[in-house]
């Protein structure tokens, strides 16, 4: 409940403060957001699987974001940045779909 409140406050802050994303961060931010979402859905799934561990969640959240950003950074250096971003987004989206499917099976048995 409190984390959900935190999410809400974050959204409100973002809307009110209207931050400008620094230029160097622009290619990585969307990827990092998708990676973070993957970690969040994974956490819900693990709660239902009975294997949720807060330490693992925090670490996986941070490492997901970092690794995703690093892959895109590497791609940028190699000159295939946009393709790499696409690849990362595809993989993370598939993971999100898999996690949501697992959650759905638990909740609806379908």
């Amino acid at each position: 409940m409190i984390p959900a409140l935190g999410l809400l406050i974050g959204v409100v802050l973002g809307l009110v403060l209207h931050p400008t994303v620094p230029l160097w961060m622009q290619p990585y931010l969307p990827i990092a957001v998708v990676a973070a979402l993957d970690a969040v859905f994974g956490a819900f799934r693990s709660i239902l699987d009975g294997i949720f561990n807060d330490r693992i969640f925090v670490i996986s959240f941070l490492s997901n974001v970092l690794v995703a950003a690093m892959i895109v950074l590497l791609g940028d250096q190699l000159g295939v940045g946009s393709q790499m971003s696409t690849g990362v987004v595809v993989v993370l989206s598939m993971r999100i779909f898999a996690n949501v499917a697992a959650i759905r099976r638990h909740l609806l048995k379908a």
């Binding site: 984390p3 959900a4 935190g6 999410l7 809400l8 406050i9 974050g10 959204v11 802050l13 973002g14 809307l15 931050p19 994303v21 931010l29 990092a32 957001v33 973070a36 979402l37 969040v40 925090v58 959240f61």
Partner: peptide
């Protein structure tokens, strides 16, 4: 973490 996530998504 969630607060930062929400902020980042909005941004």
């Amino acid at each position: 973490i969630f607060l930062i996530l929400g902020f980042t998504i909005t941004a």
